[in-house]
Computed example of a mutant assay.
Amino acid sequence: MDPLSDVFALLKVESALSARVEAAGPWALRFPAYRHVKFGGVIEGPRWLWIEGSSEQVKLNPGDFYLLTDGRPYCFASDLAAPVLEGVEVMAANLCDDGVVRFGAGQPHTIGAGGRFVFDQEMSGWLVDLLPPVIVIRGDSPQARSLRPALELVQLETKTIRPAAAVIAASLASIVLVNILRAHLASDVPPVGWLGALGDPKIGEALRYMHAEVQRNWKVADLATAVSMSRTSFSERFRAKVGLPPLEYLTRWRMTLARHVLRSDTDTLATIANKIGYDSETAFGLAFKRMFNESPGRYRARMRVAGSGPSKPGSQILAPTFEA
């Protein structure tokens, strides 16, 4: 798998929630702070989006998708002059029997659907911390090509309550999220940090090598040769793009994998060490303690007491809450 797929494979989704909102006339709604990632798409009619405390107001048009990632309260509006009401209260009071929220009268008429993801806290930094507060993918942009069919499915699935709706919604939301990130990577202003490095021809290739053969005893010279660069140029470019030296990045990814396995499987410490590239349980233990200030065995015991292992990765779909 590629690095982004690797990270998603370990991102245990604690919740994926969605709702459809059909609103008419002038309105403005404020929604409270949230964890990790909010997402949505505009099905019909324009609307405005802004983060509380920010002067930047983004106009969204039909076909546009957005991600919100910094956790601050945010607002949607059809009219910037409309009084701002509490969104959760308005939506709870206007929830219809078919699961759609409808309120207001007159023009303009807007329809949108959205929700949120809450990820495993220990893995979320690989993704959430590297994203800007707002990502907007315009529906008429070349990058949105793969999102257009997803928006049609969002529209179909949110029109009314259907059998197995929660399962479909969770899967569809994941497709939307991945495709928004792909579009963001392909945009004219690529992201910074690890996520942006995936789009760099040389550094992205090096990251794929490290993820594909995490157990290999990589040297910086080996990676530089693999991507046809000098050792010095590769090291400088890798650090500039990723924010870490190559082998430090590799160590952090290995330790991330180790924590996942320690929580989800019953493999021995020696087996885990071998799988992620350490010659001995001792070497693995020293590297783990150096990074997390506790031994692998102690970490595994603490996670089991906390009730998080051993288990297999998966999704937990909770009852919908009200989101724009």
Rank of each mutant, 00 (worst) to 15 (best):
K275R: 15
S55E: 14
Y66N: 03
H211K: 08
S174D: 10
R300T: 04
V42Q: 06
P296T: 02
I111G: 03
F31P: 03
V90A: 06
V154E: 00
V136P: 06
H211Q: 10
A144D: 09
F284T: 01
F284V: 00
T268N: 03
A113S: 15
E44M: 08
M210V: 15
M303D: 09
S280Q: 08
T232W: 07
S230K: 09
D222H: 12
G63E: 04
P32K: 07
A82K: 08
R182Y: 11
L177K: 04
G87F: 00
M229Q: 11
N179S: 08
L244A: 08
M1K: 09
E294P: 02
V220K: 01
E89K: 12
R138L: 09
Y34P: 01
V128N: 02
V227P: 05
R102I: 00
K38D: 09
V242N: 04
P310C: 07
S55M: 09
A24Q: 14
D267V: 08
R254N: 00
T160Q: 13
S78V: 04
S78R: 01
S15L: 10
I203V: 15
E294K: 10
T251P: 01
H109Q: 15
R300H: 00
A212S: 12
S264T: 15
P142T: 07
W194Q: 03
L247S: 02
A270Y: 07
P246G: 06
L127D: 01
G63S: 06
S228L: 11
F31S: 05
K38W: 07
L60A: 03
R304A: 11
E157M: 13
T110Q: 15
T110E: 10
A173R: 01
P108R: 06
L131N: 02
A324Y: 11
K159G: 15
G125S: 06
D6G: 12
I168F: 12
R102F: 05
D79Y: 03
F39G: 02
S233I: 02
P149S: 05
P73M: 06
V305P: 00
L172P: 04
A24I: 09
S141H: 02
K38I: 15
D200H: 14
P133A: 11
A186G: 10
K59D: 07
Y74L: 05
L223C: 04
T232V: 13
V118I: 13
P108W: 08
G314H: 07
P296Y: 00
D265R: 13
W50K: 09
L181C: 05
G309R: 01
G63I: 10
V136S: 09
L80S: 06
M210Q: 10
V90M: 12
W218D: 00
R231K: 15
K202A: 13
A186V: 07
N217V: 09
G196F: 01
S230E: 05
S308M: 12
E213C: 13
Y209H: 15
A170L: 06
D98W: 03
V242M: 02
R298I: 11
G45H: 06
L262C: 02
K38R: 14
N217I: 04
N179P: 04
L195E: 01
L95S: 04
V128R: 02
R254V: 01
N217M: 09
G87I: 01
V21W: 04
V58W: 10
V214N: 03
K289R: 15
R162M: 13
